[in-house]
Design a protein around this nucleic acid. Structure first.
Ligand SMILES: [Zn+2]
Ligand SMILES: [Zn+2]
Lengths: 691, 691
DNA sequence: ATGCGGGCGCGCCCGCAT
DNA sequence: ATGCGGGCGCGCCCGCAT
């Protein structure tokens, strides 16, 4: 990465001798009978350069140089608070900064090597977006329809430009056809087509007028044999790949009423994504059933952080049931190897630790995390397919956290970005502050925040998940003590009536009766020096308090800090699960678990998996051009051991932290730590896994 | 075959405990909201028996008992001069004879063994119609659409009845859906649906009113994704499987004008098949080109009747070109094994000799020859697929002829059916007389007569095929003499200027100069006694006269009869190629060859093969449910050695005949015979085979 | 020009879930 | 009831052959 100013690099490359990236002059159509753009001067915002140049309207809100500098880090230009791929420019001038003309020749000579006219770009940094390449260089005979559009047709150029901005997550063939269809519908409505181009290419930064198409009788359109609601289709293409109809709300700027019988506005920036109303009245009945308590000792015995493949220790039938969260029994045609395959493929870290929130490694152009400006990444494989719309936003079990949130007594949490080089460490008093200070602050546009808001809505409108049947559980949690990756001593069960438990460095082996789990009494012949030293520091340890609503609070009693893995706390702080270590200073008390959250998370996982299965079956049924691989499905579901770790456990390391900024990468490298298994949540999970 | 009266057996079998084959009562629909047949007494022609019986209108023209007796021979009922499969009846009453009721239960219990309730039928005689079975017992998931029709829906029963009468030659899935679609369109037009049922089940014997459906804007409908003209679609299903739009002409009885903008009549018996007008102005330019004469010695050297696989002696490239009549070079994706495979598979006889014109062995229900009442059968394989719509109607090279037409001097030809037992030998003065005497006389409904009429139209409107270039041929024919299956002596060439040639038993080896081919001069050390005796009987032999229009006349000069294979004469007498031996008595003179006919035949073969190739490619492209086999294609094309034999040769056996009624089955078993190769026709054939 | 054949989307229809 | 999703045919469109 060179230090001097450079331009962004697009995901779609237009090699060609021309210096500009342009749309051809619509006035010079060789087809005299075409009604398309036959008036040479109908729009004042158009500046005509020469007969082959189409000049985009000058962007009224040029991006500041500091924004461009930020964008420089990862070769993406940020527009409208989101990252977008930027078309190729070789004049050093950002695309939106001035009136830049597109050269038709650059479209027609894609065979020339890209480097020949882009010498200033370090090509090692250019993300290879294979799907995009397929889009343009496809030799698929199924794409014959696009060949009907002559390359001389200006529609084709517009389609190609608009295709550059699609957000991935859809079948490229579908995206192409959908854009082709839209452009065709707009070709006689020049103003609206211009509005669409401006909206999309500016990423919504420009205020644009409505882009309307005829509304069909049932409000759906069909593209490539697939039906969809128009504004949802195009919102998915250009804004949120996985948005659903219920989540889209018209903004005030849109002049077309939602109930307009003739027209529908498909301007993707005339809609905002909101929490779906479908969760307002969420049915939590699965929690209130009074079915007999089941034996979930198998789940309890799982050791996701210490076993290389914890699923292997389970009985085979349970593995099948568990790994796909009940999907298996509903889909007999489901590949039978999905169980173990998912466990192995999804949890293992596929991603290098990020170095800076703005210096993300970019993956496939189809990756839903593409352009995500949150300081967080997914555990998803970089080879993720376009199907990966319901991907799990979490760190894998052995991925190192990049953030620390410091929890001091009587102080708000403070975020420390340990992924930055030490001289650049940033500190924010809370996530909101961090967001506000972030020049690329996004609102609800990122998958993780959207997802968390959805969970909050579910939690807010759900009934109390603490049903009577949970009173049958003899213990509310069990605690396992580890030194490094080895369990020391027996798992310690905390009975339901003992709502407070202290885990300390004491030596009393009978402390259980007094609500104490004395780690000092546990012997380890292989104990390391580091563990010896840390055990001394445990001191008064920590206190866990169990509330009747199922929530758990943690208080640090020790003189030294404890470091906590609590995915509920990640959620509360809008951090991706597993991305953050929560540092508890002496006296700090925080809620480390919430049963409603856990239940909502399980419901959402189930929903995602059903959607993934549906998509898989759909594609498998459709056959032909985009046969999904099993891998695609694997990537979109979460293994049950992940779910168990996220939803049903808390881990506490004494004295020593882990992750970015610490010597130890993983929790299981810390000298002394405990994992708390929360039984009510495990029971919920188990109920989900029942047929 | 038992001697007592029996009922006909259908191609589709309805096992079930009920005694009747019926359509359920439409008045007792369980769905109260259905508008379908909700008026219990709207049509006086309906007689209600019980709530599950639908009584068909009594046929006003019951078939006479003698017709039924004829039908008894082959287990098919003849209606309207054609054979139709007859639904299962176990009460001994013909379906059309009285008001017979259908029992819904018989449809719903197809799992019971058929024999258990049809004990009076000799099941060895029942043709196994696999395609029909597939239609009813299909477990193809692609046919899920039909499952949407509940078995309680009376539409289903009507569809099933109507499906029984389809003529084969179409994709069964398509047929089913097409009938379903039609019945659905007619369900609110009770009178027209009744008319359709009457028309189809009576095979047109009943005069029926128009059956109309809405006419689409472009006049086409779509069924199972395939578009077609409605009346053509249903005419193909119920009358002529391979009919094309141009061949269908509205009859006077139809009340719907062809140009009616709203309605189209799909009553298949409101149309007649006529010779397509597209042959009226047939382009015979291929004959008039003045291209250089080509070497067709390869064709001349072929000995189709004596070589087991004559193609093998040809150079490989020519084999490829010849076997598929130019299809090969136009279809690079064509299976490369079609060449030799076609030669072997199509020519060998696959059929047992027929015993009686009305006692045909029935083949697949999809076979286009199904129900053919002409005293002729095809050389087509009995395993012919439904694709076989352009099948070759001819006897194979080694199939024995079943008929003799006696040609006496100054008398019209007289047909003798030697396939009948001797006590039942029938003699007719000509084919027309035979047809008139035939109670099942058909008009143009049989493929062979249709085809021949088409050829006649082509001949009538074609230019004279005798182009100037043919004058370049040094010889107008060559003659090969055989004893049994062995050629004796050298092939005898007849120069173009020598328009008459006599083949006699003389001994003059220099007779060629005088226009004589003296067979008596040819020696054979292995000569059999039979050949010795016959050679004595050759006497003055035969005289061939070549006319400038390319036709050839044969005169029998011998005191004994000669027996002639002349496919032109077959054509002239409406006999299937190879089905007939033409017996020439002394003094008889007949035209044995016509060049225009030969050329028309080649054109038609080419057309058929192109259609077959098109169909093959279409299905191969479509893939999925009805992938055609290479065999299906093989069956629809004729090998070039067949074409050479049919179009370019005449064979004459002295004294002894062959085929049914004679001791010798095949020509090559006769003691003394000659084959005449006609060079102009061979040149035409060769031109067809040029790329 | 005209017919012909095929691709594909909206309208219609239907089943399913809630 | 209502929404949702999907099947399938007619209308529209287009390319090709003649
Ligand atoms: Zn709008
Ligand atoms: Zn009619």
């Amino acid at each position: 990465m060179t230090g001097h100013a450079s331009t962004a690099v697009p995901t779609c490359q237009y090699p060609g001798p021309g210096n500009n990236f342009g749309v051809p002059d619509f006035c010079n159509s060789s087809n005299g009978t075409s009604q398309y753009y036959s008036n040479p001067n109908r729009d004042a915002s158009l500046i005509q350069n020469n007969q082959n140049d189409y000049v985009f309207p000058t962007n009224s809100n040029p991006i500041s140089s500091e924004h461009l500098q930020q964008a420089y880090y990862n070769n993406y230009i940020s527009v409208n608070n989101s990252f977008y791929p930027m078309p190729v420019l070789d004049n050093g001038v950002p695309f939106y900064d001035t009136s830049t003309s597109f050269d038709i020749d650059s479209f027609n000579q894609q065979q020339q090597p890209f480097a020949s006219f882009q010498p200033s770009i370090n090509f090692n940094l250019i993300p290879k977006t294979e799907v995009q390449d397929d889009l343009w260089n496809s030799t698929d005979p199924n794409q014959a329809s696009s060949s009907q559009m002559q390359s001389s047709d200006p529609c084709v150029q517009v389609v190609q430009v608009l295709s550059c901005y699609h957000q991935g997550g859809e079948d490229p063939d579908f995206v192409r056809k959908a854009i082709e269809s839209l452009v065709k519908k707009l070709k006689d409505k020049r103003t609206e087509l211009d509005a669409l181009i401006s909206a999309v290419t500016s990423g919504g930064k420009e205020q644009t007028s409505c882009v309307t198409i005829h509304r069909s009788l049932d409000g759906r359109l069909q593209v490539a044999g697939k039906k969809g609601v128009p504004h949802v289709v195009y919102a998915r293409i250009w804004r949120w790949p996985n948005v659903s109809k219920n989540e889209l709300q018209k903004m005030d700027c849109c002049r077309i009423a939602p109930e307009d019988p003739d027209l529908i506005c498909v301007n993707p920036f005339h809609y905002e994504r909101v929490v779906s109303s479908e969760y307002r009245n969420l049915d939590m009945s699965t929690l209130n059933n009074t079915q007999m308590p089941v034996d979930f000792s198998n789940i309890l015995s799982m050791q996701s952080t210490t076993s290389a493949c914890p699923m292997e220790s389970l009985p085979v039938p349970l593995q099948h049931n568990m790994n796909t969260m009940g999907v298996q029994q509903n889909a007999p045609q489901f590949p039978s190897n999905i169980g173990t395959a998912a466990t192995e493929h999804m949890i293992s870290p596929r991603m290098h630790p990020i170095q800076h929130p703005h210096i993300q490694h970019s993956f496939s152009g189809e990756d839903p995390s593409f352009g995500l400006s949150q300081p967080q990444v997914m555990s998803t494989s970089p080879a993720a397919s376009p199907m990966l719309t319901g991907a799990v936003l979490m760190y894998g079990a052995s991925q190192q956290p990049n953030y620390v949130i410091q929890h001091n007594a009587r102080e708000p949490p403070k975020l420390i970005n340990n992924a930055l080089p030490s001289f650049a460490h940033e500190e924010f008093n809370n996530v909101d502050e961090w967001n506000q200070s972030n020049p690329f602050h996004v609102n609800d546009d990122t998958p993780i925040l959207y997802r968390y808001n959805k969970l909050r809505a579910m939690i807010a409108h759900a009934q109390q998940p603490m049903s009577e049947s949970s009173l049958d559980l003899p213990d509310w949690c069990s605690i396992t003590y580890y030194e490094l990756d080895t369990q020391i001593g027996e798992t310690f069960n905390v009975p339901a009536h003992q709502e407070e438990i202290t885990i300390d460095g004491g030596m009393d082996p009978g402390g259980a009766r007094l609500g104490r789990f004395c780690l000092g009494a546990l012997s380890n012949v292989h104990r390391t020096e580091a563990s010896e030293r840390v055990r001394i520091g445990i001191g008064k340890g920590v206190k866990l308090r169990y509330h009747r609503d199922g929530s758990v609070f943690l208080e640090c009693l020790s003189d030294t800090s404890v470091f906590v893995r609590s995915n509920y706390m990640d959620f509360e702080n809008n951090m991706i699960y597993g991305s953050t270590v929560h540092k508890f200073s002496t006296g700090a008390v925080r809620k480390v678990f919430d049963l409603s959250w856990a239940h909502a998370e399980m419901l959402e996982q189930q929903s995602q998996q059903q959607a993934a299965r549906h998509a898989y079956e759909q594609r498998a049924h459709a056959g032909g051009r985009s046969q999904p691989t099993v891998g695609a499905l694997e990537n979109s579901v979460i293994g049950v051991d992940d779910l168990r770790r996220v939803c049903c456990t808390i881990a506490i390391s004494f004295v020593k932290g882990w992750g970015a900024g610490y010597n130890r990468k993983e929790l299981k490298e810390t000298p002394c730590w405990i994992e708390v298994q929360l039984h009510k949540s495990l029971q919920l999970l188990n109920n989900f896994l029942q047929p």
